[in-house]
């Protein structure tokens, strides 16, 4: 597969998968929207998935060996948490965390 074909196929596959995740409930669950397990998952899964993504991506962003022991990613993460609990401004929290992480990585 040449480069342009791969790119086109890649974008098509990504678009299809993304649309699928958004469309499935409307296609299949309209009749079961009041089933208690569907309601249970709808209520708790988003928070669960967010925590899961934070842990997995955080583990990948940090250098866990000496001398850093993960501080390079943990410090910016704590900044995001503190700022967001304080000001609750998503943009501010995200920019401050990202800039501080970039500064640490580029030192």
């Amino acid at each position: 597969m040449d480069e342009a074909t791969y790119l086109a196929a890649f974008i098509a596959v990504s678009a299809a998968a993304t649309f699928l995740t958004r469309a499935i409930p409307f296609a299949f669950l309209s009749r079961h929207s009041h089933h208690p397990f569907v309601l249970h998952l709808g209520r708790y899964l988003p928070a669960t998935v967010m925590a899961l993504l934070v842990v997995i991506f955080l583990l990948q962003s940090a250098k866990w060996q000496a001398p850093l022991f993960g501080v390079d990613a943990l410090l910016p993460s704590l900044l995001v948490v503190a700022l967001h609990l304080w000001r609750r401004n998503a943009l501010l929290s995200i920019i401050a965390g990202t800039v501080s992480y970039m500064l640490i990585q580029q030192l």
Partner: peptide, 12 residues
């Protein structure tokens, strides 16, 4: 390090 925006977004 700009990819950390994603981690920050998930934390938020």
């Amino acid at each position: 390090g700009i990819e950390f925006a994603l981690v920050a977004l998930f934390i938020v």
